[in-house]
């Protein structure tokens, strides 16, 4: 099994790695690049704990090969905060106690950000369906949905101000 050499961008940084051709991007991120924020809950695309964005689209990194990402643009939960300033979603997840064990939290944050980037004022139903690919076993999703709603409200306020 010979390795594949890949140059790509992760959270704005140029990254190079060599991986097995069958190795998942999730394993590459965790084991070769040292970014452990994305978690493996299932390896079959059913739990969303490994959510990242690839060229702006939300994906399960367990269902992407490391070999596929030559020249692509990847973002992970580690790229959400702006320096020491947390992303509003991160702040609201903490404020609304939207996590208990926290294992699903990185995936939810990445998925919620992808939703709000696309649709800054989603309905409750739109939030619930947009997050249906992320399993949480602790919270019953209640406080997660509330944290996303609170963030959307804040976004609406700031865009209003800007106008």
């Amino acid at each position: 099994m010979s390795g594949v050499h890949i140059s790509t961008t992760v959270n704005g940084d140029s990254v190079e790695f060599v991986c097995h051709p069958s190795e998942s991007l999730l394993d590459v991120l965790r084991n070769r690049i040292g970014l452990i924020g994305a978690k493996e809950g299932c390896s079959t695309g059913d739990c969303g704990a490994c959510s990242i964005t690839l060229d702006g689209r939300l994906v399960c990194s367990c269902l992407v090969l490391g070999a596929e990402v030559e020249g692509r643009d990847i973002t992970t939960v580690e790229g959400m905060a702006d320096g020491e300033k947390l992303h509003p979603l991160q702040i609201n997840f903490l404020k609304h106690a939207a996590l208990q064990c926290g294992i699903c939290t990185p995936g939810f944050l990445v998925a919620a950000k992808a939703l709000l980037d696309r649709n800054p004022s989603p309905t409750e139903e739109q939030i619930r369906f947009a997050l249906a690919g992320n399993l949480c076993r602790c919270t019953g999703y209640d406080k997660i949905v509330r944290a996303v709603q609170a963030t959307a409200k804040e976004i609406a306020k700031t865009t209003k101000k800007k106008r």
Binding site: L35, T76, Q90, G102, T105
Partner: peptide, 8 residues
Amino acid sequence: GVDKVTGR
């Protein structure tokens, strides 16, 4: 909390 929302 912060560790858990930043992936650390």
